[in-house]
Design a protein around this nucleic acid. Structure first.
Lengths: 117, 117
DNA sequence: TGGAAATACATAAATATCTTATGTATATTT
DNA sequence: AAATATACATAAGATATTTATGTATTTCCA
């Protein structure tokens, strides 16, 4: 059975915040582990966010005022739900917009016709 | 007069090798400084490759057998032209292909409909 | 004609981001 | 009962890039 390979970590670098902000914008609130699973599921395993990368990023976004948290107990186990602050919504929109522009630029750059220029 | 802003360096991260390999595939041979200027020109300043990032990358691609060099003298000043090796052509195609897939995945991930899932 | 800007290379220290490894603990499945 | 999944967290190491610095030649223009 064929397993679709992950994208190189080099490419994924730099997109983590954009992914997280966008997911929270769409879903309202999510907890860390849920984010890792959702991204894996939505990308069919092609993008896998490690917890070692995600948790520090969530903490940093929170400290920066983009996210706020709310704890929930499932039995004895804690979940930390994250959601966008007002400022976080602005940042999310900016990031997504910037990424869309970046993709267009890269598409143009990589679709160059031979011998052109 | 409006100056279109650069993309955040976070986003550009990880795409440098892909950009360089693709440009060399299209142009045949280029020297370092020429690459920085060409990328700036083609992207209207939205992507600017710094020499501090480019030269180490070119050296590393050369050491890895993806690129080979040829010196040319313009008066007393040297230019180091880089071109793809046979292996470099394979790697270039792989990288470009991978990036195209990555863009599709990201597009899907960021175009999520509200409340879906 | 002389100084600024552009061309052309290079490397190193500092910074940022991510991977890999490790740790703790609870809940579920087999 | 043991293995796996859930759920958090942090730290050491790896990697890639920015920023700073250095050298030298050539072109532009005032």
């Amino acid at each position: 059975m064929y397993i679709c390979p992950m994208y190189s970590s080099e490419l994924i670098k730099g997109t983590l915040k954009t992914i997280v902000l966008n997911l929270l914008k769409e879903k309202g609130k999510m907890y860390g582990y849920e984010i890792t699973q959702k991204v894996k599921e939505l990308t069919e395993g092609k993008i896998q966010i490690t917890e070692g990368a995600l948790y520090p990023t969530l903490h940093s976004l929170e400290q920066n005022g983009e996210l706020e948290t709310e704890k929930e107990y499932i039995g004895k186990r804690v979940r930390k739900y994250y959601k966008l602050t007002k400022q976080g919504h602005v940042t999310a929109a900016e990031r997504i917009n910037e990424f869309a522009g970046f993709m267009n630029t890269m598409k143009f750059l990589l679709d160059l016709e031979p011998k052109m220029g």
